[in-house]
Design a protein around this nucleic acid. Structure first.
Length: 758
DNA sequence: AGCAACCGTGTTTTT
DNA sequence: CACGGTTGCT
């Protein structure tokens, strides 16, 4: 580790380096950078130079004489962490600060102390896929839930862990005993496998910090200054970790933006940022409101829209930029035409000199990426998919990785069960269950059962033979564990004869799988080069903890396609925000409560504020899914954007005759840049979204818009029967509060709720 | 034990 | 539509 240089005194007053660190910062930014001791909350609006403030602040702290290893900076993605490290280094101060995500930080805080939570240092981290397998096994062993409840069970238990609620506590709270039982069984199974899931990483660290004074002391001695980015998206466990690390010295700096809170669905608690001043008394609060990213128009459009959120502190971003190019709205026949429009626009912009990597396409759900892939491929436009089915989640990759995991952690039952018969070697499901039962009965691991297969009653001779061969295969591979990871990966692929299996199948998709395995070898080689010290365990850890954005190479000459969630923290010269349709954004599953709608609105806000120069908003009149075609109206958020910031797209949009009613001007039915009527055209009445075909096509719905009265009994497709408590709003905005017979009150948009009188 | 054909079920968002 | 899981046949 490099030693920190003592403070430079060559110049009087502020040193040369210090001047450089404060160079080009506005007064609020300087305030944030130079406030080193004591709690600090930086409310940093979109594009206000937050990353810059954080990196300068770290550099400034080091320059002030704080040892880098006493600094902990927690970011949202590893990529952000890497960039931050690099930028601090560029500022010319010694590096060595811990810059990490919550999850990888927790791994490092747990490996050396794994015994404190009853595990060994070689523990495996289970991803969603592994978790699911474990849960499935457990669900099979009881009668209260069947596999259809899997996702419910998973989310309830995950939520409990994020709230630091143990099984016993959950029980005390009177939760359904079946949940408690599954929660206990699941934790026991993880423990047996010497494994943790993502939630455990946070849970264990939080618990240890709370309950083990030596542990807390060890880490608070180390981390004397704590910075947390994206604080609005921390959950309770993460909040406790930060609080426990920082409460003694109070040297905590949180940065975030309540308007960009988009993870409440996975337990993030917006109160963490709202209550900061209460949690850390005497906190200094700095607001960054000067936006350096977007044009005036984009900024105004996004700001006006987000103002519709009621649960919000009023704030105003401003910019000195003068460009006023309007936002373009593209109305398209369907999702395919939408992709065609965007592709055409991409090509046009490329001709104008905009690099592909400076544009981005955003959408609400991963499923929407399909059309773009198809259309972009058709036009030979290079693109990169961020997220979706991640490379490391592919079957063939997971299979090979499962071998590696078993070598590191011989208790990893989930991984072992996965590969016992992959490639097929005559060990069928019956034999595997027999082994599992035996392991269960003898209180030992699945691998031990495999080793003892000879003595297990009823094990077919053929299976026994195969298991012997399997064990010797593992032994062969074990000789590679101290060698470079790339060598081990290569040996695994070779010795398992995995490629031979794929070649033999003759299926075209299996050829792609072979490519993927080569890709895996390359990834391992890159890892080896970058991390000569960290070894196999580090490789496996990175793979499970790397986020999708981490894997995105912004230097590639390709248009990135990503969900709005992935877009957070990024910026592009040109942004295409697609699928602006009610039901997609806001999403069907997130429009029942006001809080849900507001989170969707924040998501839209995040998307819009990524754009530096040009913003395109697009919506299809129809979308095909599950084979059928469906109509939906434009997103309600469109009507919240000031009309004078929007102009119809200049591309000619051909509208099918059936959609002719969209052509308000009516004089040229094939020219939809006229039908690209935008929300504001209705003037002050624009609070109501543009007339949608939803009304025209489904008159049954429009009849329901009014016609309910309090006290009336109604039925809802999902929630069943209930009684109307209160009505509010009218027309498109009409809502009803209904007390359902399950005891819960829900606020429903009548337009979508499909309530029927009973 | 392994393979093929069929069925049914599902789309938020992710560390 | 597209995938994964189950069934039933060999």
């Amino acid at each position: 580790m490099i030693m920190i240089e003592p403070r430079t005194d060559r110049l009087s007053g502020r040193g040369e380096l210090e001047m450089k660190l404060l160079e080009d910062l506005n007064p609020s930014q300087v305030e944030a950078v130079t406030h080193v001791d004591g709690p600090l909350l930086v409310i940093a609006g979109a594009g206000t130079g937050k990353t810059r403030v954080i990196t300068r602040r770290i550099a400034y702290m080091i320059h002030e004489g704080i040892a880098p290893w006493n600094i902990l900076a927690i970011t949202f993605t590893k990529k952000a962490a890497g960039e931050m490290k690099e930028r601090v280094a560029q500022l010319g101060v010694a590096t060595g600060a811990w810059v990490s995500t919550f999850h990888s930080m927790c791994v490092q805080m747990l490996r050396p102390f794994a015994d404190l939570v009853g595990l060994r240092a070689s523990f495996t981290i289970y991803d969603a896929d592994d978790q699911k397998k474990l849960y499935k096994q457990i669900l099979q062993g009881q009668r209260e839930f069947d596999e259809k409840d899997l996702s419910l069970v998973m989310s309830v238990i995950s939520r409990a862990k994020n709230e630091l609620v143990s099984p016993s506590l959950l029980e005390e709270r009177g939760e359904n005993p079946a949940f408690v039982g599954i929660y206990r069984a699941y934790q026991a199974a993880l423990r047996k496998a010497n494994a943790m899931d993502f939630d455990d990483l946070l849970y264990y660290v939080a618990k240890l910090l709370l309950e083990n004074e030596d542990y807390r002391r060890h880490w608070t001695d180390r981390f004397r200054y704590v910075l947390v980015d994206e604080y609005q998206d921390t959950n309770h466990a993460q909040y406790v970790i930060v609080r426990e690390l920082a409460k003694e010295r109070g040297n905590v700096c949180a940065t975030g933006d309540p308007d960009q809170a988009i993870y409440t669905w996975r337990g993030a608690d917006i109160r963490n940022i709202l209550d900061f001043e209460h949690d850390f008394p005497n906190a200094k609060v700095v607001k960054l409101e000067r936006n350096y990213r977007s044009t005036k128009t984009i900024l105004r459009a996004a700001s006006e829209m987000i103002r519709n959120n009621t649960e919000r502190k009023e704030r105003e971003l401003y910019t000195d930029k003068v460009e006023t190019e309007p936002i373009k709205l593209l109305v398209c026949r369907d999702d395919e035409e939408e992709a065609e429009h965007i592709a055409a626009e991409v090509l046009r912009l490329q001709e104008d000199g905009v690099e592909l990597r400076d544009m981005a396409v955003f959408y609400r759900t991963n499923a929407q990426s399909r059309v773009f892939e198809k259309v972009f491929s058709g036009h030979r436009i290079p693109y990169v998919l961020i997220g979706a089915v991640g490379f490391y989640e592919r079957k063939e990759v997971k299979d090979i990785l499962a071998y590696l995991r078993v070598l590191v952690n011989d208790s990893d039952n989930v991984s072992l069960a996965r590969i016992l018969n992959v490639p097929p070697r005559g060990i069928g499901n019956t034999s595997i269950s027999r082994l599992e039962t035996w392991a269960e009965a003898h209180g030992t691991s699945l691998l031990t059962a495999v080793r003892e297969a000879e003595t297990i009653q009823g094990m077919p001779a053929r299976a026994k033979q195969s298991l012997r061969e399997f064990l010797s295969l593992l032994d062969q591979l074990r000789t590679f564990t101290q060698k470079p990871v790339a060598d081990l990966v290569e040996a695994t692929i070779k010795n398992t004869r995995y490629v031979e299996m794929l070649e033999a199948s003759g299926k075209p998709e299996d050829m792609d799988r072979i490519d993927n395995l080569e890709e895996l070898q390359r990834a391992a080689a890159i890892y080896d080069a970058a991390n000569p010290e960290r070894g196999l365990a580090g490789f496996l850890e990175d793979i499970t903890l790397l986020s999708d954005v981490d894997k995105y190479d912004e230097n590639a000459n390709a248009v990135p396609l990503m969900t709005l969630h992935c877009a957070k923290g990024l910026e592009f010269r040109v942004v295409f925000l697609s699928g602006l349709v009610d039901g997609l954004l806001p999403h069907y599953n997130s429009m029942e409560t006001q809080a849900e709608i507001e989170e969707e609105r924040r998501l839209c806000y995040v998307g819009m504020t990524r754009a530096k120069e040009k913003l395109y908003l697009t919506y299809p009149l129809e979308r095909s899914f599950w084979g059928a075609s469906r109509c939906s109206g434009p997103s309600r958020f469109l009507s919240e954007i000031p009309p004078d910031t929007i102009t119809p797209g200049r591309r000619v949009t051909r509208v099918r005759r059936t959609s002719r009613r969209w052509n308000v001007d009516g004089d040229d039915e094939d020219e939809a840049d006229r039908s690209g009527r935008h929300p504001g055209e209705r003037g002050a009445a624009g609070a109501e979204p543009p007339q949608t075909d939803a009304r025209a096509r489904t008159p049954s719905r429009s009849r329901q818009v009014s016609g309910f009265s309090p006290g009336e009994r109604v039925n809802h497709n999902t929630f069943g029967p209930g009684r109307v408590v209160q009505l509010e709003g009218s027309g498109e905005q009409a809502k009803a509060i209904v007390r359902f017979d399950d005891g819960y009150e829900r606020k429903l948009m009548l337009k979508y709720a499909n309530l029927t009188k009973i």
